Simulated scan of single mutants.
Amino acid sequence: MTDSRPAAEDAITVLIHDPESDHYVSMIRRRFPDIRVLCAKDAQFLQCHVPEADIILTSPSRFPVRLFEKARRLRWVQTTVAGVEAFLPIRDRMSDLIVTNARGIHGELIADFVMTGIGMMQWDFPGLMREQSRKEWRPRCVPPLAERTLGVVGLGSVGAAIARRGKSAGMTIIGSKRDVSEAIAGVDRLVPPHGLPELLQLSDFIVLAVPHLPETTRLIGREQLQLMRRSAFLINIARGSVVAESELIEALQAGTIAGALLDVFEREPLPVDSPLWTMPNVIVAPHVAGYPSDYTARVFEIFGENLQRFIEKRPLRNVVDLNRGY
Protein backbone atom coordinates (compact mmCIF):
# COMPACT_ATOMS: atom_id res chain seq x y z
CA MET A 1 0.00 0.00 0.00
CA THR A 2 1.35 3.41 -0.94
CA ASP A 3 0.19 6.96 -1.31
CA SER A 4 -1.05 7.47 -4.84
CA ARG A 5 0.07 11.08 -4.93
CA PRO A 6 3.41 11.79 -6.61
CA ALA A 7 6.24 12.65 -4.27
CA ALA A 8 7.04 16.34 -4.51
CA GLU A 9 10.66 17.18 -3.94
CA ASP A 10 9.85 19.13 -0.76
CA ALA A 11 7.00 16.87 0.48
CA ILE A 12 7.50 15.17 3.83
CA THR A 13 7.22 11.39 3.49
CA VAL A 14 6.38 9.15 6.44
CA LEU A 15 7.11 5.45 6.08
CA ILE A 16 5.24 3.17 8.49
CA HIS A 17 6.44 -0.33 9.28
CA ASP A 18 4.29 -1.75 12.05
CA PRO A 19 1.53 -4.38 12.50
CA GLU A 20 -0.91 -1.53 13.23
CA SER A 21 0.15 0.42 10.16
CA ASP A 22 -3.39 0.82 8.76
CA HIS A 23 -4.51 2.56 11.94
CA TYR A 24 -1.51 4.89 11.89
CA VAL A 25 -2.08 5.70 8.21
CA SER A 26 -5.70 6.62 8.90
CA MET A 27 -4.81 8.85 11.86
CA ILE A 28 -1.99 10.61 10.00
CA ARG A 29 -4.13 11.32 6.95
CA ARG A 30 -6.95 12.75 9.05
CA ARG A 31 -4.68 15.12 10.95
CA PHE A 32 -1.99 15.78 8.33
CA PRO A 33 -3.62 15.57 4.88
CA ASP A 34 -0.60 17.11 3.13
CA ILE A 35 1.85 14.50 4.45
CA ARG A 36 2.74 11.66 2.06
CA VAL A 37 2.33 8.32 3.83
CA LEU A 38 3.86 5.00 2.77
CA CYS A 39 2.75 1.77 4.44
CA ALA A 40 5.30 -1.04 4.26
CA LYS A 41 3.54 -4.34 4.93
CA ASP A 42 6.19 -6.57 3.38
CA ALA A 43 9.96 -6.66 3.13
CA GLN A 44 10.03 -5.93 -0.60
CA PHE A 45 7.98 -2.74 -0.30
CA LEU A 46 10.04 -1.63 2.70
CA GLN A 47 13.34 -2.13 0.91
CA CYS A 48 12.06 -0.39 -2.23
CA HIS A 49 10.65 2.70 -0.53
CA VAL A 50 12.90 3.31 2.47
CA PRO A 51 15.09 5.71 0.38
CA GLU A 52 12.04 8.02 0.06
CA ALA A 53 11.37 8.34 3.79
CA ASP A 54 12.02 11.51 5.77
CA ILE A 55 10.42 9.92 8.81
CA ILE A 56 10.02 6.27 9.82
CA LEU A 57 7.46 5.04 12.34
CA THR A 58 8.36 1.53 13.46
CA SER A 59 9.30 -0.84 16.25
CA PRO A 60 13.10 -1.26 16.57
CA SER A 61 12.81 -5.03 16.98
CA ARG A 62 10.93 -5.35 13.67
CA PHE A 63 12.89 -2.94 11.49
CA PRO A 64 15.88 -4.41 9.58
CA VAL A 65 18.59 -2.02 10.74
CA ARG A 66 20.68 -2.69 7.61
CA LEU A 67 18.13 -0.62 5.68
CA PHE A 68 19.25 2.56 7.39
CA GLU A 69 22.11 2.61 4.88
CA LYS A 70 19.52 3.04 2.11
CA ALA A 71 17.54 5.73 3.95
CA ARG A 72 19.24 8.68 2.31
CA ARG A 73 16.52 11.26 3.13
CA LEU A 74 15.81 10.01 6.63
CA ARG A 75 15.95 12.58 9.42
CA TRP A 76 13.82 11.15 12.22
CA VAL A 77 12.78 7.72 13.55
CA GLN A 78 9.79 7.47 15.89
CA THR A 79 9.53 4.10 17.62
CA THR A 80 6.22 2.60 18.73
CA VAL A 81 7.79 1.25 21.94
CA ALA A 82 10.01 2.60 24.71
CA GLY A 83 13.01 0.27 24.30
CA VAL A 84 15.54 0.99 21.55
CA GLU A 85 18.07 -1.77 22.27
CA ALA A 86 17.86 -3.10 18.70
CA PHE A 87 19.35 0.19 17.47
CA LEU A 88 22.29 0.27 19.88
CA PRO A 89 24.68 -1.94 17.84
CA ILE A 90 24.51 0.59 14.97
CA ARG A 91 24.17 3.80 16.98
CA ASP A 92 27.34 5.22 15.43
CA ARG A 93 25.68 5.00 12.01
CA MET A 94 22.55 6.71 13.37
CA SER A 95 24.34 9.67 14.89
CA ASP A 96 22.79 12.13 12.40
CA LEU A 97 19.24 10.93 13.07
CA ILE A 98 16.73 12.04 15.68
CA VAL A 99 15.28 9.00 17.46
CA THR A 100 12.19 9.39 19.64
CA ASN A 101 10.33 6.69 21.53
CA ALA A 102 6.96 5.99 23.16
CA ARG A 103 8.17 6.68 26.68
CA GLY A 104 5.35 7.74 29.00
CA ILE A 105 2.46 5.69 27.68
CA HIS A 106 3.26 2.57 29.70
CA GLY A 107 3.87 3.80 33.23
CA GLU A 108 0.40 3.99 34.74
CA LEU A 109 -0.76 0.69 33.27
CA ILE A 110 2.41 -1.09 34.40
CA ALA A 111 1.92 0.45 37.85
CA ASP A 112 -1.62 -1.04 37.83
CA PHE A 113 -0.12 -4.43 37.00
CA VAL A 114 2.60 -4.20 39.65
CA MET A 115 0.29 -3.09 42.45
CA THR A 116 -2.23 -5.79 41.54
CA GLY A 117 0.59 -8.34 41.68
CA ILE A 118 1.85 -7.01 45.01
CA GLY A 119 -1.63 -7.43 46.47
CA MET A 120 -1.89 -10.95 45.07
CA MET A 121 1.44 -11.96 46.58
CA GLN A 122 0.87 -10.17 49.90
CA TRP A 123 -2.36 -12.13 50.46
CA ASP A 124 -1.20 -15.22 48.54
CA PHE A 125 -4.12 -15.19 46.12
CA PRO A 126 -2.66 -18.14 44.15
CA GLY A 127 -2.72 -20.14 47.39
CA LEU A 128 -6.24 -18.96 48.20
CA MET A 129 -7.44 -20.06 44.77
CA ARG A 130 -5.83 -23.49 45.19
CA GLU A 131 -7.56 -23.82 48.56
CA GLN A 132 -10.84 -22.74 46.99
CA SER A 133 -10.53 -25.46 44.36
CA ARG A 134 -10.10 -27.97 47.21
CA LYS A 135 -12.87 -26.35 49.34
CA GLU A 136 -10.41 -25.74 52.16
CA TRP A 137 -11.07 -23.04 54.78
CA ARG A 138 -7.72 -21.81 56.14
CA PRO A 139 -7.85 -18.34 57.81
CA ARG A 140 -4.56 -16.49 58.37
CA CYS A 141 -3.28 -13.06 59.40
CA VAL A 142 -1.51 -10.73 56.95
CA PRO A 143 0.30 -7.46 57.77
CA PRO A 144 -0.90 -4.31 55.94
CA LEU A 145 0.96 -3.06 52.89
CA ALA A 146 1.71 0.14 54.80
CA GLU A 147 4.20 -1.88 56.85
CA ARG A 148 6.01 -3.12 53.73
CA THR A 149 8.96 -1.68 51.83
CA LEU A 150 8.96 -1.46 48.05
CA GLY A 151 12.29 -1.30 46.23
CA VAL A 152 12.16 0.07 42.67
CA VAL A 153 15.26 -0.54 40.56
CA GLY A 154 15.16 2.08 37.82
CA LEU A 155 13.19 5.29 38.22
CA GLY A 156 12.37 6.33 34.68
CA SER A 157 8.77 7.10 33.77
CA VAL A 158 7.66 3.54 34.57
CA GLY A 159 9.59 3.15 37.81
CA ALA A 160 8.50 6.58 39.03
CA ALA A 161 4.84 5.68 38.38
CA ILE A 162 5.27 2.46 40.37
CA ALA A 163 6.92 4.37 43.23
CA ARG A 164 4.02 6.84 43.38
CA ARG A 165 1.47 4.02 43.52
CA GLY A 166 3.38 2.21 46.22
CA LYS A 167 3.59 5.39 48.25
CA SER A 168 -0.16 5.95 47.86
CA ALA A 169 -0.64 2.51 49.47
CA GLY A 170 1.42 3.69 52.44
CA MET A 171 4.51 1.67 51.59
CA THR A 172 8.07 2.83 52.29
CA ILE A 173 9.81 3.36 48.94
CA ILE A 174 13.49 2.83 48.18
CA GLY A 175 14.55 3.66 44.65
CA SER A 176 17.69 3.12 42.60
CA LYS A 177 18.71 5.56 39.86
CA ARG A 178 21.85 6.67 38.02
CA ASP A 179 21.40 10.33 38.93
CA VAL A 180 20.48 10.78 42.58
CA SER A 181 21.02 14.54 42.66
CA GLU A 182 17.28 15.31 42.51
CA ALA A 183 14.55 13.86 44.70
CA ILE A 184 11.84 11.68 43.12
CA ALA A 185 8.23 12.16 44.21
CA GLY A 186 7.15 9.39 46.56
CA VAL A 187 10.62 7.93 47.04
CA ASP A 188 11.71 7.92 50.70
CA ARG A 189 15.28 6.86 50.02
CA LEU A 190 17.22 7.19 46.78
CA VAL A 191 20.36 5.16 46.13
CA PRO A 192 22.75 5.04 43.15
CA PRO A 193 23.30 1.79 41.20
CA HIS A 194 26.08 0.67 43.56
CA GLY A 195 23.51 0.88 46.36
CA LEU A 196 21.55 -2.04 44.88
CA PRO A 197 22.68 -4.51 47.62
CA GLU A 198 21.21 -2.21 50.27
CA LEU A 199 17.93 -1.91 48.37
CA LEU A 200 17.71 -5.70 48.03
CA GLN A 201 18.34 -6.26 51.73
CA LEU A 202 15.74 -3.73 52.91
CA SER A 203 12.83 -4.43 50.54
CA ASP A 204 9.84 -6.75 50.83
CA PHE A 205 8.95 -6.31 47.15
CA ILE A 206 11.57 -5.54 44.50
CA VAL A 207 10.48 -4.24 41.10
CA LEU A 208 12.90 -4.26 38.18
CA ALA A 209 12.15 -1.31 35.87
CA VAL A 210 15.52 -0.72 34.19
CA PRO A 211 16.17 -0.46 30.43
CA HIS A 212 17.97 -3.23 28.58
CA LEU A 213 21.64 -2.17 28.58
CA PRO A 214 24.95 -4.04 28.87
CA GLU A 215 25.19 -3.01 32.53
CA THR A 216 21.67 -4.27 33.32
CA THR A 217 22.11 -7.67 31.67
CA ARG A 218 21.87 -10.34 34.40
CA LEU A 219 21.68 -7.57 36.98
CA ILE A 220 19.90 -10.00 39.29
CA GLY A 221 21.54 -13.38 39.78
CA ARG A 222 22.43 -15.80 42.53
CA GLU A 223 24.47 -13.29 44.54
CA GLN A 224 21.76 -10.62 44.48
CA LEU A 225 18.96 -13.10 45.24
CA GLN A 226 20.83 -14.27 48.33
CA LEU A 227 20.81 -10.69 49.62
CA MET A 228 17.02 -10.56 49.52
CA ARG A 229 14.84 -11.46 52.47
CA ARG A 230 13.42 -14.98 52.45
CA SER A 231 10.00 -13.34 52.69
CA ALA A 232 10.63 -11.00 49.73
CA PHE A 233 9.13 -11.10 46.23
CA LEU A 234 10.79 -10.19 42.93
CA ILE A 235 8.77 -8.46 40.18
CA ASN A 236 10.26 -8.14 36.69
CA ILE A 237 8.53 -5.84 34.19
CA ALA A 238 11.82 -4.71 32.58
CA ARG A 239 13.40 -7.24 30.23
CA GLY A 240 14.02 -10.96 30.64
CA SER A 241 17.75 -10.35 30.20
CA VAL A 242 17.88 -8.41 33.48
CA VAL A 243 17.50 -11.64 35.49
CA ALA A 244 19.63 -14.78 35.32
CA GLU A 245 16.59 -17.02 34.89
CA SER A 246 18.14 -20.35 35.84
CA GLU A 247 19.54 -18.84 39.05
CA LEU A 248 16.15 -17.32 39.86
CA ILE A 249 14.53 -20.73 39.42
CA GLU A 250 17.06 -22.23 41.82
CA ALA A 251 16.34 -19.51 44.40
CA LEU A 252 12.58 -20.00 44.10
CA GLN A 253 12.90 -23.76 44.46
CA ALA A 254 15.22 -23.42 47.46
CA GLY A 255 13.08 -20.83 49.24
CA THR A 256 15.84 -18.21 49.06
CA ILE A 257 13.04 -15.74 48.23
CA ALA A 258 9.30 -16.10 48.74
CA GLY A 259 8.16 -15.76 45.13
CA ALA A 260 8.11 -13.82 41.90
CA LEU A 261 5.81 -12.04 39.46
CA LEU A 262 7.32 -12.25 35.97
CA ASP A 263 6.02 -10.51 32.86
CA VAL A 264 9.24 -10.86 30.82
CA PHE A 265 11.58 -13.78 30.19
CA GLU A 266 14.88 -14.67 28.57
CA ARG A 267 12.94 -16.48 25.83
CA GLU A 268 9.46 -15.41 24.77
CA PRO A 269 7.05 -17.09 24.59
CA LEU A 270 8.21 -18.84 27.75
CA PRO A 271 9.11 -22.42 26.74
CA VAL A 272 6.50 -24.99 27.78
CA ASP A 273 9.14 -26.99 29.66
CA SER A 274 10.13 -24.06 31.90
CA PRO A 275 9.67 -24.89 35.60
CA LEU A 276 8.30 -21.36 36.09
CA TRP A 277 4.94 -22.39 34.61
CA THR A 278 4.07 -24.73 37.47
CA MET A 279 5.87 -23.25 40.49
CA PRO A 280 3.35 -22.44 43.26
CA ASN A 281 5.22 -19.27 44.28
CA VAL A 282 5.41 -17.76 40.76
CA ILE A 283 2.89 -15.74 38.76
CA VAL A 284 3.64 -15.86 35.01
CA ALA A 285 2.25 -13.19 32.67
CA PRO A 286 2.76 -13.18 28.86
CA HIS A 287 4.45 -9.76 28.53
CA VAL A 288 1.17 -7.85 28.91
CA ALA A 289 1.89 -5.28 31.61
CA GLY A 290 2.62 -2.34 29.32
CA TYR A 291 0.05 -2.73 26.55
CA PRO A 292 -3.14 -0.71 27.10
CA SER A 293 -6.14 -1.45 24.90
CA ASP A 294 -5.73 1.95 23.20
CA TYR A 295 -2.00 1.51 22.62
CA THR A 296 -2.01 2.73 19.01
CA ALA A 297 -3.90 5.90 19.90
CA ARG A 298 -1.44 6.62 22.72
CA VAL A 299 1.53 6.19 20.41
CA PHE A 300 -0.10 8.51 17.91
CA GLU A 301 -0.56 11.19 20.57
CA ILE A 302 3.24 11.32 20.83
CA PHE A 303 3.91 10.88 17.12
CA GLY A 304 1.24 13.41 16.07
CA GLU A 305 2.61 16.07 18.39
CA ASN A 306 6.14 15.31 17.24
CA LEU A 307 5.14 15.44 13.58
CA GLN A 308 3.62 18.89 14.13
CA ARG A 309 6.82 19.95 15.88
CA PHE A 310 8.89 18.49 13.02
CA ILE A 311 6.89 20.46 10.44
CA GLU A 312 7.36 23.63 12.49
CA LYS A 313 11.06 22.87 13.07
CA ARG A 314 10.63 22.76 16.85
CA PRO A 315 12.37 20.32 19.25
CA LEU A 316 10.73 16.90 19.48
CA ARG A 317 9.43 15.08 22.58
CA ASN A 318 10.92 11.84 23.92
CA VAL A 319 14.28 12.17 22.18
CA VAL A 320 16.47 9.13 22.89
CA ASP A 321 20.19 9.41 23.63
CA LEU A 322 21.52 6.34 21.85
CA ASN A 323 24.85 6.71 23.64
CA ARG A 324 23.05 6.12 26.95
CA GLY A 325 20.62 3.65 25.42
CA TYR A 326 17.40 5.38 26.52
Rank of each mutant, 00 (worst) to 15 (best):
A11K: 04
E9P: 00
L270I: 10
L199Q: 02
L15C: 07
L307Y: 10
V320S: 09
P144Y: 14
G154E: 13
E247M: 04
E301S: 00
A163C: 05
L219R: 07
E85D: 15
R178D: 01
W277S: 00
A289F: 11
E301C: 00
L190Q: 02
L276Q: 05
E301K: 00
P292K: 03
L196P: 00
G175M: 12
L199W: 13
V153Y: 15
F63W: 14
A102M: 03
N318R: 06
G151R: 11
P286G: 08
E147S: 12
L190H: 01
N281H: 05
K313Q: 15
G166S: 11
A7M: 10
V320H: 10
T13M: 09
L97K: 07
I105M: 08
L67D: 08
T256N: 09
L97M: 12
G255F: 14
V288S: 13
I12F: 13
K177E: 10
I110Q: 05
V207W: 14
V142H: 06
R130Q: 06
V264N: 07
A209R: 04
E268T: 03
S95I: 12
V180Q: 01
L199R: 03
Y24H: 05
E131H: 08
D188W: 04
R148W: 05
E20M: 12
D18H: 15
F265C: 05
V65I: 14
E69F: 09
I249K: 03
R103K: 13
V320A: 09
M279I: 01
M94Y: 12
T2I: 14
Q308H: 06
R165V: 05
P292Q: 06
V319E: 15
V14W: 07
C48Q: 13
G304S: 13
M279K: 01
K70M: 07
R91K: 15
V319F: 10
A232Q: 03
V142P: 01
R5C: 05
P143R: 12
R31N: 08
G107V: 01
D42T: 05
A289N: 02
V153F: 15
G156I: 03
T278F: 09
F300W: 14
D3G: 09
T13C: 10
F87E: 11
L145S: 07
A8N: 11
H17Y: 15
P139S: 04
A40W: 08
L57R: 03
M171K: 03
D96M: 05
E85L: 07
M27F: 09
G156L: 03
F303A: 02
K41Y: 07
D92C: 01
E147N: 01
G325Q: 13
I174Q: 03
D273T: 05
Q253C: 11
A232S: 10
W76Y: 08
T58Y: 11
Y24M: 04
R134G: 00
S274A: 10
V284A: 06
T217I: 09
V14Q: 06
R5A: 10
V207R: 02
I98Y: 12
Q253L: 14
L225A: 08
P214N: 07
M228R: 01
E247Y: 09
R138A: 11
L97R: 09
M171P: 00
A102P: 00
L97H: 12
D92Y: 07
V25G: 03
Y291M: 04
E305S: 02
Q201L: 03
V191R: 00
Y295P: 00
I16N: 03
L67T: 06
R93D: 15
L316N: 07
A53C: 11
A232L: 08
S293N: 08
Q224F: 09
V37P: 01
